Simulated assay, not measured.
Amino acid sequence: MAQIREWHKQVNDERFVITTKRDLLDLDFIQNAFARDDMYWAKPLSHQDITLMLDSSQTLGVYQISPAVSAAASASEPSSPRTPSPTLEQEPQETYRQIGMARFITDHVTTAYLTDVFMDPDHRHLGLGIWLIACCKEIMESMTAFRRAYLMASPGAGAEFYAKTLGFWDVHEEHEKCIAMTRRGFKF
């Protein structure tokens, strides 16, 4: 299994993290993303199928970090932050809300297929999608015997974006050496 990786970024006053930690993935977020028209290639899956899919993939989740919230001050205490009581068993935890993702089907050494790239519409135009793709590029470049990466992109802006950010090209440019072949599933 690949090592866990994390990247942090602040945009204005908001903090974000991209991580490969599988246990942070929000299945409801992913199912809702799969149900969206802009993820036309995906459909929601059974809990068993989505779990198997994610367990068999390298995932990058994008999360908005909410700060830890201390216990509310009493009326006799100031409302400003206070030093935790020594009797407090556990410090308040930051919360992570998933807002995006990308998924690799990969052997972690030679080959990677990038799919299911998605950013919540409320968080688009903050540069988070470009950051996510930069993290994907870093993962591909860290593969020790990297041969090839693949993806399916929409013609036009989608293809141009991946060409510019990841150096991908249309496989037709290699028509004398290889062709891309596919078979659609029968459930759609």
Results as ranks from 00 to 15, higher is better:
Q93N: 08
D38Y: 15
G156K: 04
S66D: 15
Y113P: 05
H175N: 14
C135D: 06
Y162K: 02
G167F: 06
K43S: 13
V62Y: 01
Y96E: 03
D28V: 13
I179H: 13
E6M: 09
D49S: 12
Q3N: 11
I4V: 12
Q98V: 05
S57K: 05
T110I: 00
H8N: 15
I99C: 07
T111F: 13
E160A: 14
H175Y: 14
M181Y: 08
H47C: 01
L60H: 01
D55I: 00
W41M: 14
Y40F: 15
A75V: 10
S142H: 07
P86D: 11
I50G: 06
D49I: 01
D37Y: 05
D49Y: 04
E160P: 00
D13R: 10
L25E: 02
E160N: 12
A68H: 05
S57P: 03
V62E: 00
Q64R: 14
S79P: 00
D13Y: 07
Y113D: 05
R22H: 14
Y162S: 02
Y150Q: 03
L24N: 10
G158E: 04
E77H: 04
R82S: 14
D13C: 06
L132D: 03
Q93S: 14
L151P: 01
W41G: 08
V109A: 14
I18D: 03
D55G: 09
A112D: 04
I65W: 03
F34M: 13
V117G: 06
W169V: 04
T20P: 06
F16T: 06
R183K: 14
S66G: 02
A163S: 15
W169K: 12
S56D: 11
F16Y: 15
Q64C: 10
P67G: 08
V171Q: 10
N12W: 01
F168I: 02
Q31M: 14
D120I: 01
T165Q: 15
M119S: 03
M119W: 02
V109I: 12
A112R: 03
L132M: 13
L27T: 08
P155N: 05
Q98L: 08
V117I: 11
A68L: 05
H125A: 15
I99M: 08
Y96T: 00
A163Q: 15
R97E: 12
D26Y: 09
V171D: 14
Q10V: 12
M140C: 10
H125S: 15
H172T: 13
E138A: 11
V69D: 03
Q10W: 00
A145E: 15
I4N: 10
G129R: 07
P155Y: 03
L128A: 09
T110H: 13
S70Q: 14
A33C: 13
R36V: 01
Q31C: 08
Q31K: 12
K164N: 12
L114S: 07
D13I: 04
A73C: 08
W169T: 09
W169E: 14
V69I: 09
C136W: 00
A68R: 06
A149D: 02
